[in-house]
Amino acid sequence: MTPALQVNRLNKYFGGLHATRDVSMTLPRGELHAVIGPNGAGKTTLISQLFGELRPSSGQVLIEGRDVTHRPTHERAGLGMARSFQITTLVRDLTVAENVILALLARQGHAGRFWRRVDRNAGLQADAAGALARIGMPATQLGRRVSDLSHGEQRMLELAIAMVGDPTLILLDEPMAGLGSEESRAMTRFLAQLKGKTTVLLVEHDMEAVFELADRLTVLVRGEVVAVGTPAQIRDDERVRDAYLGEDA
């Protein structure tokens, strides 16, 4: 079966800095794959290359067997890829509904209608409410301006938008950063129910959540893959402990 995501010997140089070193990985469909590593390991850099926001210096990215290495972000999104950001990138001046509808429009391919009123379209409003409901946000939030939301609410909304249209492959960049413990638990529960349905690449510092959720893990240190394996294998891996877990403990 074609893997959902395949990465072949990806390299990225920023001037003299070798930020991604020969990274290869294969994610079968439905896998929840975590990427962990100390700060500065190049996790966000990796995600940005997978999503087409950064151009790799060399190597290949394949989605469902299709080479997208040189395709722009919006085309990758069209192929069923979605991403959440470490720093929320919601449109702060717009309402929650408008932010969700933007993603709905993209998924429905309803892009360039000059004339149809978005705010009076009952179907879109209902779909937006549905998208919020999936992550447990009440529909009463729809009319609020994003800049009025709390940090936790923004992270949840970010995830709700990434989930719009059921992406086949979703890249999550530290979805739990800055969340309270209650919110973190809600996020973990949500990710757990995605398992087996959607392929997920999860970058996260919350080790408890990562080891609970992940089918497999890749450990990245200074841009390089030092280990790949199941949570149990990674926990017992000497090199990982030396390079990474040891530092934290």
């Binding site: 919006h74 993603a103 429009l105 993209a106 998924r107």
Partner: peptide, 8 residues
Amino acid sequence: RRVSAVGF
């Protein structure tokens, strides 16, 4: 960035 992330 958000606009291209959703696919536009």
